[in-house]
Design a protein around this nucleic acid. Structure first.
Length: 569
RNA sequence: CGGGACGUAGCGCAGCUUGGUAGCGCGCCUCGUUCGGGACGAGGAGGUCGCCGGUUCAAAUCCGGCCGUCCCGACCA
């Protein structure tokens, strides 16, 4: 490619409303332009990089026996109704009406649609199968943000495995796990596999591949000592036991005027330390009010509440609902004496005695509450969110909690989709059995953004060779006849070796060319100018390190080509 | 969904308080001089001031409504 002919509209100023590093750099370096909230045009540079990401993914999926398909983005709503997900997905699903008044949706994932084809599988002898596609997904996110990190239209590699039993599913899952590790390694992403919640996807187990980055939207609990890693949506940690005294025979009510929060009660005369309090939250789970109890100093992790109660739909109760249920306002709520209402309690409250909690009478609390004696707990569950510095659940060393980008997610689905959609095969005994499925996703543009988040400096992006839009740029310092001739010679030699090269033949001053090459992040720069040519040399600069090396003009192209080939992996 | 901010040329912004000819920097075009880290001079092109309505002799500016975009929060009692 000749830069003079390329559409690479780099910007001199940072875009005003880009916050995340990758968002800012991808716009400025002419990779993307926004069309509307959460919808971006990929300019030629981004298209080239995405094509390389795609190739890496295809190679690794093919290597585990994956077969590539292309499924439609338009789906009949009916299929989604069959699995119950038309409702589960809610407003996140784009819906439209066709000319015959038919309900149509835009695909946000493809379990239902792949499974529809999988109904053509009839015998265990056809299994296992791994099917995938790389295609557009539509999700009407409530809040798109950070450039390509959270968008409403994006490209996803989604694969689905089909096996005769759980053991087969485990094998397919492990194969994906290993393939994903290879994919992220090739993309030069330090992705940590992490235990995760399965959310709306359902199923028995899932692993997220997380890349540590400030712009990330997830929190990961990670133990540097033993390697334990989990999304805080599921993460566990050890809780130091609190020594309780037995306390009184029964709870005692006492006035607490003006006390509204845990902290208020800590500093209130006659109150209690936060770890001696019971925090009472009111949630509406699938339309039913429920009490959620935690230790006073423990925050609720809402995803855990949803996962462990099996609620499809949940929200905190409104103030009126709270008053109607318990007869008091938030700040004075408690579970003592509450009957006929679902009470979900965090395990850290098991066996606790002589605690303090709200009395369900405004401005009053109860002390001397022993949880198991005084509260009708309907279910015990792990509900608390872990915090940095707590002892690791595995090895007791302090854990770290950091922000991360979810670059891939793999799920064991089991028969959640095969049963309602009738994807059955006959086993060796001639018995009809539902297929065991797994589903596995990677968002391509999000991965591009994650690479930028982790590969940049003050001058711009520094792409790894595997995904760089161009592997090398020839920066021509002067457009006089001799210099151009030498540059053209190196250019055609590099093209001949198959290197993805662009020659910067623009009528611009050297500084402009250097800055653009660094902003865009091309891994290797070959600088050719009259000064060096007088001695028969050109310069090779490595973007990542900034190191420059003078090499003989003869053989320069071959040398660069070798280095690039070695880094392609 | 709640809260905050913003919308004027391709990009970054001023002008609005106090209504009267739409401006600056970068970028873009032409010519010349330059040319190893975002050059200089001269001359140019480019804008329904987000949209609709109202007030007024007159609206980027005042008033009302709508739309759009970004950021924060997602209720921790």
């Amino acid at each position: 490619m000749r830069w003079s002919q390329a559409f690479i509209p780099t910007l001199r100023d940072d875009p005003a409303d880009a916050e995340a590093v990758s968002h800012r750099l991808l716009i400025r370096a002419a990779f993307i332009r926004q069309l509307m909230a959460g919808v971006y045009t990929l300019l030629p540079l981004a298209f080239r990089s995405r094509r390389k990401v795609r190739k890496v993914i295809e190679e690794e999926l093919d290597a585990i026996g994956g077969q590539e398909f292309l499924f439609p983005s338009l789906h009949p709503a009916e299929i989604w109704r069959k699995t119950g997900r038309l409702d589960v997905m809610g407003d996140e699903m784009f819906r439209l009406i066709d000319r015959k008044s038919g309900e149509v949706v835009l695909g946000m994932t493809h379990e239902e649609i792949f499974t529809t084809i999988a109904t053509e599988l009839t015998s265990y002898k056809q299994l296992p199968q791994i099917w995938y596609q790389i295609h557009t997904k539509f999700r009407d996110e409530p809040r798109p943000k950070s450039g390509l990190l959270r968008v409403r239209e994006f490209t996803m590699k989604d694969s689905y495995s089909f096996d005769i039993d759980q053991e087969g599913l485990d094998t397919a899952f492990d194969a994906h796990y290993e393939a994903y590790k290879r994919i992220f390694a090739r993309l030069d992403l330090d992705a940590i596999p992490v235990e995760a919640s399965s959310g709306a996807m359902g199923g028995s187990g899932s692993v997220e591949f997380m890349v540590r980055a400030e712009a990330g939207e997830d929190l990961v609990a990670h133990c540097a000592n033993c390697g334990y890693a989990a999304n805080v949506e599921t993460a566990l940690s050890r809780v130091a036991a609190v020594a309780d005294e037995a306390g009184p025979e029964s709870p005692e009510r006492f006035p607490t005027p003006g006390v509204r929060t845990i902290e208020d009660l800590v500093s209130f005369e006659g109150g209690a330390a936060a770890d001696r309090q019971i925090k009472t939250l009111i949630y509406v789970l699938d339309g039913e009010a429920a009490l959620v109890l935690l230790r006073g100093d423990h925050p609720l992790q809402e995803q855990k509440l949803q996962d462990q109660t099996g609620a499809m739909d949940f929200r905190p109760a409104h103030p009126e609902e709270i008053r109607e249920l318990l007869g008091a306002d938030a700040g004075s709520l408690g579970a003592v004496g509450v009957d006929g209402v679902r009470i979900v309690a965090d395990r850290a409250l098991e066996g606790r005695m002589n605690m303090t909690t709200g009395a369900n009478l405004d401005d009053h609390h109860l002390r001397g509450v022993s949880v198991e004696r005084d509260v009708e707990v309907t279910e015990w569950a792990d509900l608390r969110e872990v915090a940095a510095g707590e002892p690791c659940i595995e090895c007791a060393e302090p854990i770290d909690v950091f922000r991360a980008i979810e670059c891939g997610h793999i799920f064991k689905l089991g028969t959640k989709y095969s049963e309602p959609l009738g994807a059955m095969v006959l086993d060796g005994d001639g018995k009809s059995r539902p297929i065991y499925m797994g589903s596995y996703g990677i968002g391509l543009e999000r991965n591009l953004a994650a690479i930028v988040e982790t590969h940049h400096d003050d001058n711009g992006i520094a792409w790894p060779v595997t995904v760089a839009p161009y592997e090398a740029v020839i920066t021509v310092l002067r457009r006089d006849a001799e210099t151009m001739e030498a540059a053209e010679a190196v250019y055609s030699e590099l093209l001949g070796t198959g290197v993805d090269v662009i020659i910067d033949d623009r009528d611009e001053r050297p500084g402009v060319k250097f800055n653009d090459a660094e902003l865009i992040g091309i891994p290797y720069r070959i600088t050719i100018g009259p000064r060096g040519l007088a001695d028969g040399i050109v310069e090779v600069t490595v973007r990542k390190t900034g190191e420059t090396e003078k090499v003989a003009m003869d053989g320069a192209a071959a040398g660069i080509a070798d280095r690039i080939r070695a880094e392609r992996s």
